[in-house]
Every structure is written in structure tokens, then in C-alpha cells.
Design a protein around this nucleic acid. Structure first.
Length: 748
DNA sequence: CGGTAGTCAGTTTTT
DNA sequence: CTGACTACCG
């Protein structure tokens, strides 16, 4: 096997050659993780392990596909036999196959977040609860986190009862009703896919042994992002052979808000005392300057395993920091720089990526890219499958597959219009609810529903149309079903009649969906309708990166989506306190550390050039907000503030800071801006009105200073004697001033 | 029942 | 500022 691993470095070899027993691989950014994993799998196969005995789980389809492709490259034809999938699709396949053994309808559908929201809104309405207090988004959080911890509705109820907490008790009621509704609809949500799988393995010894027997080798990618359910899933399956290999990087753990538990990786060695630990630290991606900047940032985290990524590729271009007046100018500078680099270096648009903290930031960037004629693709904003017309067609397919799917039923019952309005639908719903049956089933009992005869006729017509698919669906391909339903429903005809720009684009999207179905039928093993619907529910927009659609387009995406990717040139935008690190994250150590890891992830995506930019003024909900540069800039050892009197408010072009040149940090002007000190006071003191001190320099108010002139308060910290203000003077200079000494005068 | 005008809340991050 | 949702009128 020497040949297989010959081109791996020493640590990579150690990892790839360790086959038996628990193995923990700390894989730093850009250290050739996938290479190691695929070589290790290839190595197992070459040692005679049958590919089907290997299970590899990842978080994204993209990662799974990449892994399969590369195993196949090393061992042509064998990659297919290795079970490589995402956690969720493993769960889905497991539950589909084992449904009958665990009392589950094998034809279940998977409800995505928007479906969940609809069900939860119904639950809250039905229970007559305060819709402000029990918002669907919030309830999704509560229920999803519970499922991550394997707490089903019943046990959640028991916990809630003993806790005496009102919110939890009501949540328990909602959780219970939500599960009842999912059951009637024959649907599972993302959380169920994992929870039910783990519970089935936990409670059914025969089943557990079957899977333990089947998978002699288990491999988990991105282990730092596993939640409790995922942790148990891989632990259970590997418990017999103990050949569990986990790969991850605690410095890249950025999904705690989704239930990920960084302790899973930090405590792996305690979990498996006999494990071997390998650290991959040699980076093959980025320049020394980029890595150094990233290191300067991440080393500020306390809660991390000691390790340091390094490279032989010393030097390289310095990291550039840009201060801009506004988010518009920030976006324009990024676009201009891309054009400049393209002119000078023969680069493709796809050599560039712009990251941001929140999706809302993409808009200004898109405008700038359009203005400058740069082809771009926004990843993850509005997913293709979430578009109204696409979702409509999918809901028809879902309803054909599973008539009890109430969410789909309600979505399409009047789309295209059939003259069925709110009143009629509500009457049908009341009937269905009273008998605990689905809406489709209620259509069989229309006699008992109090609606107009016109509505009855419309419902009956809908039922006839949907029933016509029952005998056909087994004989038709998914694509045939889809085109047939387009015809029978008149969906396209209605759009054609509308003949607007929007309706035309909707038609295009529907045709794109049809070709996606076509593609599915050509590529997938499971070509059934159920297979298609499962696949659609579990794909993400991220899977498109690198696909044809994004060929030669600059990529715009959130920092979270950037993990695992690499680009020649990376821009991280919106590096402002309050935006990144976001909101209140600065006041909680764990939250701040996660933001810092996000910064680290973003920075380490860059191969050659890294740009950090921030805007002094940014519009939020149409209102201006003045921000300070993110602390991460300073932490990276870069110049946070240019302060040569050239002001942010003068409307000058962006100031470029290429940190290769020594720079005095602006200290000569005395305008050193320190980031807001979280220890100086609570958030309330920092932002709120200041009644106790007797001063009233609210954020946004105007003040005059003897020397600097007039300006605007943009930041507060401390209180009483220690009240400090950051003032943006009309000259463009920034000052942090202690109110006690500064002798400020308030002006109106 | 369906369209439109007006109100209102929302920005973390998503498999 | 936008989009999503609600309340009225045709």
C-alpha cells in the first residue's frame, strides 16, 4: 500500500494507515483532510475490507459526493459500494428500510423548515395561544433542539411539568400537537430523521446488531459539528467493532446554534481512551500571510485544542483591510478590485468569493456586481426549491405520493385557482380536525362539511383530478407524473394567461424543475417518486457550488456556507462590531468564540488574496447605523483604523490598507479607536439611556468639542464617571472620549 | 371569493 | 426598506 499513501505527508500517512480501533483526526483548514479520508478508505478496501462494510457520514451532499468521487478515483468502481451519505439521508434511508420494524409508514415525507412553520402556526392557532409569544420560528428551535437531545414530545412534557416553567409547559403542548399533525400527514421533520433512527437502534437490539454487523468501519466527517443525536448514532453503530474514525477541527465549529456540541470532539479521547490522535497541521492551501492572520485571530480562543496550522508557502500577498464610508462603497470597491485583478491576472469570475455574516448583506453586493457586469451566484439565499411555483409543483408531487400531506394540500388546493377560498377550506379543516383525519380523507365525507354547493363541486373536482393519479403513479416515471400534472392542473396555462415578466420567469423555473427531475432519473439509483422527494428535501443550495450553474461566476455566500470551500481570492465584508461579531455575541464568551471561529473559517478559505472590509455607515431597515471596525481586524494584527484626518464622512474613495507597509496606526492623530470593551458594562448600560449618571449623550445625538468641533455620538460604554463615548466628528475623525474630561457640549 | 391597500415586523447563521 | 400578512371592498 506504499504506493497508495506515498504522496501523503507523515501525519497524513499515520492517519490513513491507522485502520483498527478508534481514531481522532484533527484536520486543520486546508490540510488535505479529504485526501486522508479517501486514502484511508482506499486503504481499507485494498486490505480486503469489502466496501459495503464501510460507512462514511458527512454533513452535506457536496462533501459526500466529493468523497465518493475521490474514493472511486483511487479504486475505480468501488466507491459506489461504500455507504457514503449525509447524516440526514442516512436516517431517511434507514427509516425507509426499517419502517415496518419500527411501526412507521415507509411512505413518509420529509417536512422542511417552511413546512414545519406552517404546521406550527396551525398548532398555535388551534390551541388559541399568543402568536407573538409562540412564534413558529422559535418553536422550531425548541422542538429541534429537543429532538437533537432525543427528547420526544412525551418526555418533553414530563420535564416541562416538573420544571414549573410556563413557556416550557406550553411548548410541550405545542410539541405534542405538532407531532400528532405530522403523524396524520405521514411526515417526518429533519429532527425526526435523526431522533427516530437513534431511538430505533437504542431500543431494538436486533436492529442494532444488524447495523453493527454491517458496518465494520465508521467514519465521521466534520465531527465538531455533530449534535447529541448524531454523536450517539455513530457511537452505537461502531460500538461492536470500535473502528470509529472521526475527523474534524474544533476551530471550525460554527453550528452550536443548531445543536452542535463541540464537546463531542474535545472529549473524544475521554470517550475512547484507547484512541489514536493525529493532528494534520500542514496547510496546502493558503499563503503564510493569510495563515498567520488567521492564527492571530483564532489564538484568542480559550476553548480549543492546542495546534497550529503552518505552510511552506511563506509570505504571499499581505492581507488587505479596507475601510469604506458606506456599504454601497464597500460593495463597489470589491467589484472594482475584482475587475482590476481580472484585468491584470487573467482570472475567472469563479476565482472570487465574497463572504458576509448575514444574508441581508448580499443585496448591496449584488447591485454592485450587476452594475459592474460581474457574473455572480448567490448561494443559499432563496433556494430554488423554495420558490413558490417550484414548491407548488413539488407539493402536487408530494400529495400524489402521500395524499395525507396536509401542508401540501393547503398549499395547492387553490393554486391554480379553483374557487376554493378561506371559508371553504376552514370548514373542511374543522371537519378533518374533529375526526383526526387528513384533509384528503375529509374530501370523502363532503356531505358532512357545511360549505356552498359551488365549493363542494370544486373540492370534488380536485379530488377526482388527484385520484386519477392513484392507478397511474406506479406506472409512470417521476417526470411523466410531473408533466401530466402540469397538464391536468392547468398550472402552466394559468401562468401563460397572466403573461407578465414574473409569470414567464415562473414558467422557466418550472421547466428547470422538470429538467432537474430528468437529471435525477438519469443519475439516481432510486428512481421512485419517494426517492425523488427525499432527495429534494435533503439537498441544499450549497450543493450547487462548483456545479455548472456557478461555473465562471463569482460566489456570494454567508460565512457559514463557506466552510469546506476554497477560493483564490476572498473578500470578507461587513467586518463591523455588532455585525461580525454579531449582535450580543460580544458579551458572551462562548458566543464570541464561535464568531471568532467563523472569522477563522472565512479567512482560511483564501488561497492567494484575502481582503477584509468594513463600512462606517450601514443602513439597517432603511436607517443608518454607525459601526466600529470589528475587533477581528485588530486581532489579526492588522490596522483597524486609518486616522490621518482623511475622514470616513468626507465621501472619499475607499482607503486601501495593504498591511505590508509599516503604519503608525494613526496614533499620531490621537484617534485610536479601541473596540467596545465588553467588561466595561452590561449591554444595557452601553446602549441604553443613561439616567443614573445625569448625562444624556444618547447614541445619535450631536455634540460639540472645543478642539474637534461638532460630531455625532456613535457608541457608548461605561457609566457614571466612566461613561465613554465614541464620537464621529464632522471632520471625519473618530474619538473615544471620557465624558468627565472631554467637556462636551450637547447641541440640537 | 379575489384583489388591493395598508400595516407591521424583521436580520444571525441552516442540514 | 422590503416582504408577508390582514382587512376591507368589488
Amino acid at each position: 500500500m506504499e504506493t497508495l499513501t506515498a504522496n501523503l505527508n507523515e501525519n497524513q500517512q499515520q492517519a490513513a494507515l491507522h485502520l483498527e480501533g478508534p481514531l481522532l483526526i484533527f484536520a486543520g483548514a486546508g490540510t488535505g483532510k479529504t485526501r486522508v479520508i479517501t486514502h484511508r478508505i482506499a486503504n481499507l478496501i485494498s486490505k480486503g475490507v469489502h466496501p459495503s462494510k464501510i460507512l462514511a457520514v458527512t454533513f452535506t451532499n457536496k462533501a459526500a459526493e466529493e468523497m465518493r468521487r475521490r474514493v472511486d478515483e483511487l479504486f475505480p468502481g468501488r466507491g459506489r459500494a461504500v455507504w457514503i451519505s449525509t447524516f440526514h439521508s442516512f436516517g431517511a434511508q434507514f427509516l425507509r428500510v426499517e419502517a415496518k420494524n419500527i411501526g412507521l409508514n415507509p411512505e413518509f415525507l420529509i417536512y422542511d423548515t417552511s413546512d414545519q412553520k406552517k404546521v406550527l402556526t396551525d398548532c398555535v392557532k388551534e390551541l388559541n395561544l399568543d402568536e407573538k409569544k409562540f412564534k413558529p420560528g422559535r418553536m422550531i428551535e425548541v422542538i429541534s433542539r429537543a429532538k437533537d437531545e432525543l427528547i420526544d414530545a412525551d418526555s418533553y412534557g414530563i420535564h416541562a411539568l416538573t420544571s414549573g416553567d410556563y413557556f416550557r409547559q406550553i411548548s410541550a403542548t405545542i410539541y405534542g400537537l405538532y407531532q400528532k399533525k405530522l403523524k396524520i400527514a405521514g411526515a417526518l421533520d429533519f429532527g425526526d430523521l435523526l431522533m427516530m433512527t437513534v431511538m430505533a437502534l437504542r431500543d431494538n437490539k436486533t436492529l442494532l446488531e444488524k447495523y453493527q454487523e454491517r458496518f465494520e468501519y465508521v467514519l465521521v466527517d466534520e465531527y465538531q459539528d455533530t449534535n447529541h443525536a448524531q454523536y450517539l448514532l455513530t457511537k452505537y453503530i461502531s460500538a461492536k467493532h470500535k473502528n470509529i474514525c472521526v475527523v474534524g477541527d474544533d476551530d471550525q465549529s460554527i453550528y452550536s446554534w443548531r445543536g452542535a456540541d463541540i464537546r463531542n470532539i474535545l472529549e473524544f479521547e475521554r470517550d475512547y481512551p484507547s484512541c489514536k490522535t493525529v493532528k494534520l497541521e500542514k496547510n496546502y492551501r493558503s499563503t503564510g500571510n493569510i495563515l498567520n492572520g488567521a492564527w492571530q485571530v483564532i489564538k484568542n480562543n480559550q476553548n480549543r485544542v492546542n495546534k497550529k496550522v503552518w505552510t511552506e508557502n511563506l509570505g504571499g500577498n499581505p492581507i488587505k483591510v479596507w475601510q469604506t464610508v458606506s456599504e454601497t462603497e464597500e460593495a463597489q470597491s470589491i467589484a472594482s478590485e475584482i475587475l482590476r485583478l481580472q484585468r491584470e491576472n487573467d482570472l475567472k469570475a469563479s476565482d472570487f468569493a465574497v463572504f458576509y455574516r448575514t444574508n441581508a448583506q448580499s443585496r448591496v453586493l449584488e447591485d454592485a456586481f450587476r452594475r459592474n457586469g460581474i457574473e455572480y451566484a448567490v448561494i443559499g439565499s432563496m433556494r430554488f426549491y423554495e420558490r413558490a411555483e417550484v414548491k407548488d409543483i413539488l407539493c402536487y408531487l408530494r400529495l400524489i405520493h402521500n395524499p395525507n400531506d396536509n401542508v401540501s394540500f393547503k398549499r395547492i388546493i387553490n393554486s391554480p385557482r379553483r374557487g376554493i377560498g378561506k371559508t371553504s377550506l376552514e370548514a373542511l379543516e374543522r371537519h378533518a380536525q374533529g375526526k383526526s383525519i387528513s384533509l384528503s380523507s375529509a374530501l370523502n365525507e363532503l356531505a358532512g362539511v357545511e360549505i356552498t354547493s359551488g365549493a363542494k363541486k370544486a373540492f370534488a373536482g380536485f379530488k377526482t383530478m388527484m385520484d386519477s393519479f392513484i392507478p397511474e403513479k406506479a406506472m409512470l416515471t417521476v417526470k411523466e407524473i410531473a408533466t401530466t400534472l402540469l397538464d391536468r392542473t392547468g398550472y402552466i396555462r394559468e401562468l401563460e394567461a397572466e403573461n407578465s415578466i414574473e409569470s414567464k420567469s415562473k414558467i422557466e423555473n418550472i421547466f428547470e424543475l422538470i429538467s432537474a427531475i430528468d437529471e435525477f432519473e438519469r443519475r439516481s439509483d432510486d428512481k421512485t417518486l419517494a426517492g425523488y422527494l427525499t432527495q429534494v428535501a435533503l439537498v441544499s443550495d450549497l450543493d450547487e457550488v462548483g456545479a455548472e450553474k456557478t461555473q465562471d461566476r463569482a460566489i456570494l455566500m454567508t460565512l457559514h456556507l463557506a466552510k469546506g470551500l476554497e477560493f483564490k481570492n476572498v473578500f470578507i465584508s461587513g467586518l463591523e462590531e455588532g455585525l461580525f461579531p454579531i449582535g450580543e455575541a460580544a458579551f458572551d464568551r462562548d458566543d464570541l468564540e464561535e464568531e471568532r471561529r467563523l472569522m477563522y473559517v472565512g479567512m482560511t478559505r483564501a488561497k492567494e488574496n484575502l481582503y477584509l472590509s468594513w463600512a462606517a455607515e450601514r443602513k439597517v431597515f432603511g436607517k443608518s447605523r454607525w459601526n466600529m471596525p470589528s475587533r477581528f481586524i485588530e486581532e489579526a494584527g492588522l490596522v483597524a483604523m486609518p486616522a490621518r484626518g482623511t475622514g470616513v464622512s468626507r465621501g472619499r474613495a475607499a482607503l486601501n490598507f495593504d498591511n505590508s507597509e509599516p503604519f503608525d496606526g494613526g496614533r499620531g492623530d490621537g484617534a485610536v479607536i479601541k473596540h467596545f470593551d465588553p467588561d466595561a458594562g452590561s449591554a444595557d448600560e452601553a446602549y441604553g439611556g443613561d439616567s443614573a449618571s445625569g448625562f444624556n449623550f444618547a447614541i445619535g445625538s450631536r455634540v460639540r468639542h472645543d478642539m474637534f468641533g461638532s460630531g455625532k455620538v456613535i457608541e457608548r460604554s461605561g457609566s457614571g464617571e466612566n461613561l465613554k463615548l465614541v464620537v464621529l466628528f464632522d471632520t471625519g475623525q473618530w474619538k473615544k472620549l471620557v465624558v468627565k474630561y472631554a467637556n462636551l457640549e450637547q447641541i440640537f
